[in-house]
Design a protein around this nucleic acid. Structure first.
Length: 574
RNA sequence: GACCCCGUAGCUCAGCUGGACUAGAGCAAGUGCCUUCUAAGCACUAGGUCGCAGGUUCGAAUCCUGCCGGGGUCGCCA
């Protein structure tokens, strides 16, 4: 059950009755009406702005309209009191009997509490990480990886039909470099002293197993071949093995994309050429010249006629080249074909999770999506994740740009564990930079939100273990303490929270919600220290004990549900 | 030069597709609370002209314009 959706319907029904009764003009736009929790709980439980939103078009004074509407809402079986306040807010105070029903609903819905249909089965493609298959993932990939994965879970929970996808950049110059680097390691594996790795090749040890594998598969056969012959072999092997390593890195964070989409396959199948020609036919692609880039002009800039995508027609700043001077397609060209593939596969929502350094790419992606979509409705949503700055006891962790000297994702996960990495990466909104201090995130204190939330869950489990099993039905009307009601109200807001987080594509809201809920719970716990009758287990009162234990189960469902969306383990003991 | 993100309490940050008289947390500062279901915690106090200036609105931290400050991006690189 969704508290706010429930009363939103009630508001709309009341308005309908009013227009039938001739008290309100028919055919008004109800879309801006909001039904939500008032900021200050002393105003009531549910609040609506309906009267203020409708006043102008209805030709009525907001307060008068509000009073008429409040009168009708006051009749609702669950409403104790409907007041008009301020410029025309209607505040509803719910009957005491309503809150027990919320808890009953949570317990009967259990894990499915908070499920929503707001996604309306929209086919959403969430593409994230998509790092070049040239080495292990580094710490910079963590955030996008976790963000994308949690967003996908959030969208699934709220009724979207989600596919998690990884785009493999296995077609460009970077993978040629990996191929050559692997070939060098192959020669090394055959006993040659290769000395220092030359500049321009990847020096990392992680390519040694690729060289060894090539040696196993081919013996010395590749040594006598020309680069034209051995490069594709070395490249394919290196990409495959790097990708396996990346999959393992992701798995260490419990991330598993369903689709790994190869850029190379778009070239091999002719999809890039087809897409470019189709768009040319539609007038989106033309031969022309570009103005020189602003700012610092690259040394090798040359003015020439080239094949361009008219992205400016869709809001981009300049048109973008599709074909390089050597006749091969640009990276952007394969991206155009990739976008077309997603749309052909039936997605109506394309979510790109990118690093902030790709901000300049967003308009282009949107332009391409719009052009490929034609008259189909396809939304392109880009979410940018800002940098993560690593600290160790307050000191920044130095990472030189020299290749090979970076902190890998795996190192971070191995040191602090996947739960900590995932929660911390989501405990900041994605556009804000994030500081990650190894010492702080593993601290066992309330300053550490991961611990704080997991501790709440573990505490509940601890009490539930102590509570004796009893089949009697809980009576939630026994829960009358202010602290208890605060928790119930927070639980009631969960479905709505998920919906708004999903619509905004902002999973961090779930983390903050959980920290708040955990705070409410810890406060309640502590009340039991001062007032023994408020403890969850009250020896002398089995009725209350049964009801409170059931209440704890409801809290536990919500904590666990939220943690699952974030991909963090709801631990039972700590 | 253009575009993107950020600017909210001493510090780190929330603020839900604009909403109400008192803009919220946490840390840091101050004061209390352990014979008790885990004090790995809780309660209370203090602290802010929401970068600045205009505009839209019944109503702006939230939307629009300009400016200031911090970060980022610009390529036939992926």
């Amino acid at each position: 059950m969704n508290l706010f959706a429930y009363f939103h319907d009630a508001v709309l029904r009341a308005l309908g009755q009013m227009s039938e009764a001739g008290e309100l003009a028919a055919g008004l736009d109800y879309s801006r009406i909001a039904t939500e929790a008032p900021r200050d709980s002393s105003h009531g439980d549910v609040s609506t702005n309906a009267a203020m939103v409708l006043a102008k078009t209805a030709g009525q004074q907001p307060r008068k309209l509000a009073e008429a509407l409040a009168a009708r809402l006051g009749q609702h079986t669950d409403v104790d009191k409907a007041d008009v306040a301020g410029p025309g807010f209607i505040n509803l105070v719910l009957k005491k009997g309503f809150w027990p029903r919320v808890l009953e609903a949570i317990i009967s819905e259990a894990d499915s509490y908070g499920d929503s249909k707001i996604g309306a089965g929209i086919k959403s493609n969430v593409e994230y990480v998509s790092a070049n298959p040239t080495g292990p993932l580094h710490v910079g990939h963590c955030r996008g990886a976790v963000f994308g994965d949690a967003l996908a879970s959030l969208l699934t929970k709220t009724g979207y039909d989600v596919t998690r996808e990884y785009y493999i950049n296995d077609a460009g110059a970077q993978v040629d470099v990996v191929g050559r680097s692997a070939y060098l390691r192959y020669r090394e594996a055959l006993g040659e002293n290769i000395g220092e790795i030359p500049a321009g090749l990847y020096p990392g040890d992680y390519l040694k197993p690729v060289g060894e594998a090539l040696a196993r598969d081919h013996g010395a056969a590749l040594l006598s071949k020309s680069e034209n012959e051995w490069l594709p072999i070395a490249k394919a092997k290196a990409v495959a093995m790097m990708l396996d390593m990346i999959r393992e890195d992701l798995a260490s964070l419990n991330i598993r994309q369903e689709i790994f989409f190869s850029e190379k396959s778009l070239h091999d199948s002719g999809a890039v050429a087809e897409t470019v020609e189709r768009l040319r036919g539609q007038g989106h692609v033309y031969q022309g010249r570009l103005p020189p880039p602003k700012g610092e002009i690259p040394e090798d800039w040359e003015d020439r006629e080239q094949t361009l995508f008219r992205t400016t027609a869709f809001g981009d700043d300049v048109d973008r080249p599709l074909i390089k001077s050597d006749g091969s397609y640009t990276y952007f060209a394969s991206d155009v074909a990739y976008s077309a593939s997603k749309i052909d596969r039936g997605f109506n929502e394309l979510v790109y999770v990118l690093g902030a350094d790709h901000a300049g790419y967003v308009k282009r992606l949107q332009a391409v999506g719009a052009a490929n979509a034609g008259n189909r409705k396809v939304e392109v949503i880009a979410r940018l994740c800002q940098l993560v700055r690593l600290f160790r006891n307050g000191e920044p962790v130095k990472m030189s740009k020299r290749a090979g000297d970076f902190v890998t994702l795996r190192e971070v996960v191995d040191e602090v564990g996947p739960d900590v990495v995932r929660f911390m990466m989501l405990y900041r909104k994605n556009e804000a930079p994030l500081d990650f201090d190894f010492a702080k995130v593993t601290e066992q204190s309330k300053d550490n939100p991961v611990f704080y939330v997991q501790y709440a869950h573990a505490r509940i489990c601890s009490v539930l273990r102590k509570g004796a099993a009893d089949d009697r039905k809980p009576d939630f009307s026994l829960l009358t303490d202010e602290g208890e009601l605060a928790v119930v109200k927070r639980l009631a807001a969960y479905p709505r929270l998920l919906e708004s987080a999903a619509l905004a594509h902002e999973p961090h809201r779930v983390s903050f919600y959980l920290a708040d809920l955990a705070g409410d719970f810890h406060a309640l716990w502590n009340k039991g220290k001062e007032s023994p009758h408020l403890r969850f287990i009250v020896e002398s009162d089995s009725e209350t004990t049964i009801s409170r234990l059931a209440f704890l189960r409801a809290i536990r469902y919500v904590l666990a549900s939220g943690l699952r969306i974030l991909g963090v383990t709801p631990v039972e003991e700590m």
